[in-house]
């Protein structure tokens, strides 16, 4: 089966988009001292570190960073476990009273975000939860909306979107790639 891939974002664009999102986060929340950034495993983890770095560059303080794994909060956990692996959730700061920005690479159905919100609430009661995603590809199955979006792009359900950050990609440099499968059988 052949695949055709298109580059949606290149390294320079990822950098610029993250910079803009960081400014929006600081503006919306009123500064890093009240913000915590939590990546949704696994796609949102490297991105959350990047975003935290960008936010830190805009103010006196670096926001604390954590990560959540949604395996235990999936809405199909008890019926089907083709992949029962649970990753660690690490929230090394008190979320109570903070503005917490959940970060994921791609937003599609909204089910992952629903689960991540529920997980985060088990660590305390944030003042507000925000959602930041690098790519909003459409295809929502739950009423979920992102507050900070890098790029919006309507992608058909069969296609895949891959976000690769330099720190975890096989190839050097950041980027987001749209992969359309099944061009020829």
């Amino acid at each position: 089966m052949s695949e055709r891939s298109e580059r949606i974002l290149d390294a320079g664009e990822v950098e610029r988009v993250l910079g803009r999102m960081a400014s929006e986060i600081v503006e919306a929340t009123g500064g890093a001292e009240r913000v915590g950034i939590v990546g949704i495993r696994r796609g949102g983890v490297a991105l959350s570190a990047r975003l935290a770095q960008a936010v830190a560059g805009l103010g006196p303080e670096a926001p604390p960073v954590g990560s959540v794994d949604i395996a235990l909060y999936r809405d199909d956990a008890a019926t089907a476990l083709p992949d029962p692996k649970i990753g660690p959730s690490v929230v090394p700061f008190d979320v109570a009273g903070r503005d917490v920005v959940l970060v994921d690479d791609v937003l599609q159905t909204g089910r992952t975000v629903r689960a991540a919100i529920e997980c985060l609430l088990d660590y305390g009661r944030p003042r507000r939860i925000w959602l930041a995603v690098l790519l909003d590809r459409g295809g929502r199955e739950l009423p979920v909306a992102a507050d900070f979006v890098g790029r919006t792009l309507e992608v058909p359900a069969g296609a895949k979107v891959r976000v690769e950050l330099a720190e975890e990609a096989a190839e050097p440099g950041d980027g987001a790639v749209l992969v359309r499968a099944g061009e020829t059988p």
Binding site: Y73, A77, A78, I86, P88, S89, C119, D122, G124
Partner: peptide, 27 residues
Amino acid sequence: VQILDTAEALFEVSRRPVRKVPTLRGK
């Protein structure tokens, strides 16, 4: 190893402020 690794991930749940996850709801 699979059981021990799964337990490793679940260990932290018992140290959270809310020591309950919804995973086996209805079981």
